[in-house]
Structures are given as C-alpha cells and as structure tokens.
C-alpha cells in the first residue's frame, strides 16, 4: 500500500431477522387464563405434578401435561435476588426484587416481582399473594 492507513478493526453490519413464535398448546391455555385473571397450571399425565407456567411437557416423565389446574394466588418464596443491573428486555425500575414463588398446589416455582414491601423484609419462606395489574393491562401477548 502506498499510503499509511489506519487498519480497519470494526465494521457494523446490522442483522435483522423477524420471527413468529408459537407458545404451544399448554402455554396457550396458561396465557388465556392470565387474560381472565386466572393462574392455570397443568398436571403431568403420568406423575400428576403440577407445572406453572406449563411449557408443554413434564421433563421428568417426558409426557404432556394436559390436565389444566387452576391454582391459588398465594404461595411461598423459595429464593430471591435483588437485581441492580439494567437489561434491554426488562422494563422494571431498578433495583427490584425477583423471587421464585411456589404457588399453593404447584410443584414448581415461578418467578415474580416482590414490590409491595421493602427488600430487607423479603426472606426465604415468606408467604406472598399475587397482586394483579389493572384489568385493562391484562394482555400477556403484548405486555
């Protein structure tokens, strides 16, 4: 090369791919339940364990979870973290408390935000109850 040039160390090539996702048969029941203010789990066809949110299979047995079970809106905190790091896909104000909650009647915990009490009071084993957003905002597909 005749002239000294700065080396090219980076080029930006935007990538855009659109996808249409399918929640699946059982997850769809759960999502429709949310729209009605219900927490719908699904029981394993073989072992009867109740999954919420159901993802289509009981991974223990590798069979569908086709029996829908409406669950209580109360549960127990299994473990928790206080999140202080921002993320593009999360619209919650920092810091916030995310907890694994075992709903009464469920056999697996689901994640929920604990926003109604100070962080220092949240502990493992604490009983909690679901607090719903205003009904007008119940649209899980577009959150």
């Amino acid at each position: 090369m005749s002239e000294e040039q700065e080396p090219v160390t980076r080029i930006i090539t935007p990538v855009k791919v659109d996808y249409e996702y399918t929640p699946g048969v059982t997850s769809e029941r759960f999502l429709l339940g949310l729209k009605q203010g219900k927490l719908l789990g699904a029981a394993c066809d073989e072992c009867g364990r109740v999954y919420i949110p159901p993802r289509g299979a009981c991974p223990r047995c590798a069979v569908p979870t086709s029996k829908i079970r409406e669950l209580a809106h109360k549960g127990t905190i299994i473990t928790l973290t206080i999140v202080r790091v921002p993320s593009d896909n999360i619209d919650v104000e920092l810091p916030y408390c995310a907890a694994s909650i075992l709903l009464d009647g469920a056999d697996i915990s689901m994640t929920g935000l604990i926003q109604e009490c100070p962080f220092e009071e949240v502990r493992i084993g604490m009983r909690v109850e679901a607090v719903w957003k205003p009904e007008a905002e119940w649209d899980p597909a577009h959150r």
């Binding site: 399918t22 699946g24 059982t26 993802r55 289509g56 299979a57 590798a62 069979v63």
Partner: peptide, 12 residues
Amino acid sequence: SERVRNEVEMLM
C-alpha cells in the same frame, strides 16, 4: 407451518 405446537410438543 406448525402453528399450534411448540418444539417440545412437536418432538415428544
């Protein structure tokens, strides 16, 4: 197009 089942439900 498999519009109803998810991957796990398709595989089982």
